[in-house]
Nucleic acid binder design. Structure first.
Length: 174
DNA sequence: TATTTGATTCTT
DNA sequence: AGAATCAAATAT
């Protein structure tokens, strides 16, 4: 079952936690690739100094201000794309970064997009439809006590917000 | 228009 | 510890 808008149109930390154990599915031609999500991060809105949208509406962050369930993809350090999914209602900018999948070559946000051939052309793509990129619930149950929360990676510039435990990982997954 | 910066990753 | 590498944000 493909996750729909109502799944994403909720509190961003709840979405980030519940994405663990769901399957990111990528369709390339007639080929289907699907891997379990094992690490996410929540970027919770305009007040979150680590969130790109905290500086207001810009060309880059435009899709975060749109409806939930849309891919927010940007180029980082001139070499890697990061895949995020927009959360919350239209007008409220927030998203979840998909950091790692259950595959040895997809540990890290830049590595998974490279492996799955996800680029900036997917920015703004609707992930609630069965097009080329979506997320499925395959019935895997992840217990709350199997989730570890830590501070987010690479956001030291964000002051107090860099310390918030908005990174979620499944225990025993590495 | 010019400079700085970064939700990273790989090499040394 | 440093390099690679560039679009977009910020400074001028």
């Amino acid at each position: 079952m493909i996750l729909q808008k109502d799944f994403y149109n909720r509190d961003t930390t709840a979405v980030a936690k519940e994405l663990l154990g769901k399957y990111l599915v990528r369709k390339i031609g007639n080929r289907i690739l699907a891997y379990s999500i094992i690490e996410t991060e929540a970027y919770v809105g305009p007040n979150d100094k680590a969130c790109h949208a905290s500086r207001g509406f810009t060309k880059r962050t435009a899709v975060m201000f749109g409806p939930p369930g849309i891919a927010y993809i940007y180029l980082i350090y001139g070499m890697y794309y990061c895949l995020n999914i927009v959360t919350r209602e239209s007008g409220y900018p927030a998203a979840v970064l998909i950091r790692a999948l259950d595959h040895p070559e997809m540990t890290g946000p830049g590595r998974l997009t490279k492996f799955l051939n996800i680029t900036g052309s997917h920015n703004g793509a609707d992930m609630t439809k069965r097009y080329t990129l979506w997320i499925e619930n395959r019935g895997v149950i992840v217990k709350k006590n199997a989730i570890t929360a830590t501070p987010r990676i690479g956001v030291g510039y964000a002051g107090e917000w860099s310390k918030k435990p908005f990174r979620y990982i499944i225990k025993n997954s590495d």
